[in-house]
């Protein structure tokens, strides 16, 4: 199912997409077949992107610009806790770290004790490691591992778990997100947070990410997004709350405004990029 080019007559087709898509993604959530969360096609796509990862004016500029909002979002998650979060020594696990934009920034925070960042693509991880060498301050706090989540030993005690497990701009590239998320949750400490960002599956997000960003403006390379894999916030929320053990789901919708950058716009999680966070019960 490829998105139709934007023509006046395509509105009907868009409606069709809108009607059929949710069921399609629901199916994804039920599938339990493969053993690895990694989609080989996606990996090769990101390998191609690797060289421009740290070019502030390259195709990853939008990600660089979005990165501060990830910290703002984590801060709002922490601020919502009834108990004060620790101010130092926080342990981060960044899944699908790519070139390390978030992982590096997390490691620089005064409150961060350590950051473990993983990515299945060796090319991308090589870029991340090479870039981290350019900041000697990261050496003691940031560890990269070339693996998918399946490759990490499942923690057996809270000491091995993480305060923050982050999965940014990843689930929309995963073939079986439900299964993938189930593999991530054992890594979260009781009282810790799993935070992620992704794109809602609506005609609006299809228009802005597939048509405008990839085709018309070209700020994001073509093929970066597979709209069919987009997940809506209610679906994520439902996934976590279906099983017990999670509380305080939070969402923050963000919109990229040319000339102004990324802005939080409440309600926009229903139509485009959003952050989602949920806390593990004690």
């Amino acid at each position: 199912m490829t998105p139709v080019p934007l023509r006046a007559t395509s509105i009907r087709n868009l409606n069709l997409l809108l009607k059929t898509a949710p069921r399609f993604v629901q199916n994804q959530f039920r599938q339990q077949s493969t053993t690895s969360s990694v989609n080989p096609e996606e990996v090769s796509h990101f390998n191609a992107l690797a060289s421009t990862w740290w070019d502030p004016h390259g195709s990853s500029r939008l990600l660089h610009l979005m990165n501060p909002l990830r910290h703002d979002f984590i801060r709002t998650c922490h601020a919502s806790q009834p108990d004060a979060p620790p101010t130092t020594g926080l342990k981060y696990l960044d899944i699908g770290c790519g070139g390390g934009i978030f992982a590096e920034s997390a490691a620089r925070l005064h409150s961060a004790g350590s950051v473990t960042a993983i990515d299945p693509s060796p090319e991308v991880l090589a870029i991340a490691k090479g870039h981290a060498r350019k900041d000697p301050g990261l050496k003691d706090k940031l560890t990269y591992r070339n693996t998918s989540i399946e490759g990490l030993p499942i923690p057996t005690s809270p000491a091995e778990q993480y305060d923050i497990v982050s999965i940014f701009e990843v689930v929309e590239h995963i073939t079986h997100p439900a299964e993938f998320l189930d593999k991530c949750t054992p890594f979260v400490k009781p009282g810790g947070w799993i935070v992620m960002s992704t794109i809602a599956r609506t005609w609006m997000s299809w228009l802005t990410t597939k048509v405008v960003a990839e085709d018309l403006v070209g700020i994001v390379p073509r093929g970066t997004h597979d709209w069919e894999k987009y997940i809506n916030e209610e679906e994520l929320r439902g996934h976590f709350l279906r099983e017990r053990g999670w509380n305080s789901p939070r969402v923050m919708g963000v919109v990229y405004v040319p000339g102004l950058g990324w802005k939080e716009v409440s309600g926009s999680e229903r139509v485009g990029n959003y952050f989602f966070g949920i806390r593990k019960d004690f």
């Binding site: 990165n67 910290h71 920034s105 620089r108 925070l109 961060a112």
Partner: peptide, 14 residues
């Protein structure tokens, strides 16, 4: 201040 609180490298041009 913004760069520090958001984990940016304060030296990079961006």
């Amino acid at each position: 201040e913004y760069a520090v609180t958001h984990g940016q490298d304060i030296g990079v041009q961006m």
